Amino acid sequence: MHQHLLYEIQKQVKLSENDINLCYKLFEPVYISKNTILEKANHIPKYIYYLISGFMRLFYYDENGYEVTTHINCPHGFFCSYMEFLDQKCSPVNVHCITNCDVLKMNRSDYSFMMENSSAWKDYATFILQKSLDYNENRAKNFAILTAEQRYLDLINANPKIINHVPLQYIASFLGIKPESLSRIRKNLLDKC
Results as ranks from 00 to 15, higher is better:
L5N: 00
L5Y: 02
E8A: 08
I9K: 00
K14C: 04
S16C: 05
N21E: 11
L22F: 08
C23L: 08
Y24I: 00
K25G: 02
K25D: 03
K25T: 06
F27G: 02
Y31A: 14
K34I: 03
T36H: 06
E39H: 13
K40S: 14
N42D: 15
H43E: 15
Y47K: 06
I48K: 04
L51S: 03
S53C: 04
Y61K: 11
N64W: 11
E67I: 08
I72H: 00
C74R: 01
H76V: 12
G77I: 07
C80E: 01
Y82E: 01
M83C: 09
Q88L: 14
K89M: 05
C90H: 14
S91H: 05
N94P: 07
I98L: 05
T99Y: 05
C101F: 04
D102W: 01
L104D: 02
M106D: 02
M106T: 08
D110Q: 11
D110P: 08
M115P: 04
S118H: 02
W121A: 00
D123Y: 04
D123E: 10
F127Q: 10
L129K: 12
L129M: 13
K131I: 12
S132Y: 11
Y135I: 09
N136P: 05
N136T: 08
N136L: 09
E137T: 08
N138G: 10
R139E: 08
I145D: 08
I145A: 07
L146N: 10
E149R: 11
E149Q: 12
E149W: 08
A158G: 06
P160G: 06
K161N: 11
K161E: 13
H165I: 03
V166A: 00
L168H: 05
Q169M: 11
Y170G: 05
I171M: 07
S173W: 03
F174C: 06
G176P: 14
L182C: 09
L182S: 07
I185L: 02
R186G: 10
L190S: 13
L190Q: 09
L190P: 09
C193R: 12
